[in-house]
Amino acid sequence: MAELNNSDIKIVTKDVNLFYGDNHALKDVTLDILSNKITAFIGPSGCGKSTYLKTLNRMNDIVPNVKISGKVLLDGEDIYENGVNVTYLRKKIGMVFQKPNPFPMSIYDNVAYGPRVHGIKSKARLDEIVENSLKGAAIWEETKDRLKQNALGLSGGQQQRLCIARAIAVEPEVILMDEPTSALDPISTLKIEELMSQLKEKYTVAIVTHNMQQAARISDYTAFFLVGEMIEYGETQQIFSRPKNKKTEEYITGRFG
């Protein structure tokens, strides 16, 4: 593993193995995710990067026949230990998905959904959260006059920023993004990338991306995955300019993948 500087470590994963039935999808993945940095996971399709991302907030629990071993520590606490409150975990580690997936309800209700399920009822408080979250996701100006309108009326890029607003409305510490721009046009993609660099001031961001330029542009650290294994991990600049592993080099220079 590459030497990392001494920033705070937010998430530690140690020897994580994951099986979908007989399919060994993650093999001994060990890496640390640092606070207030953007960590990118790159690799060809099916390499396990999305699966790895989903182990971090236990979204794989929903999939039947999944077996996970190893340790995932959030601020030193094992999130797979018995008695962990998954609801609370997912409040702390928010997620933005590949396809923008706003609920078929108003923009306001979309953002207020998270706070509401976590018990916030006060209208004034919700108003405040909705406004701050939409501002935080750089979509307030576009939506402030139509908060009561159905979110499905927004464009794809706006929907994705709304989903980011919805994720930050529950005040997470970490935001996981699973190819958040792969369904978007270049301009929307650019907006989301700009947004991400703002987000890291307050949150720890982990992003899966197919787009290597994107990883190079926005991330501080990059991990390269290949058929379930984490091949190389280090500072983004180093990974893209002086990869240590030959496979990483081949992938980055476009020889396969």
């Binding site: 609801t87 997912r90 997620m95 997936n101």
Partner: peptide, 14 residues
């Protein structure tokens, strides 16, 4: 759509 369920779980809903 499955995405709605994922989104809801992702926000910590039961």
């Amino acid at each position: 759509p499955e995405e709605y369920r994922e989104a809801s779980y992702g926000l910590g809903a039961t």
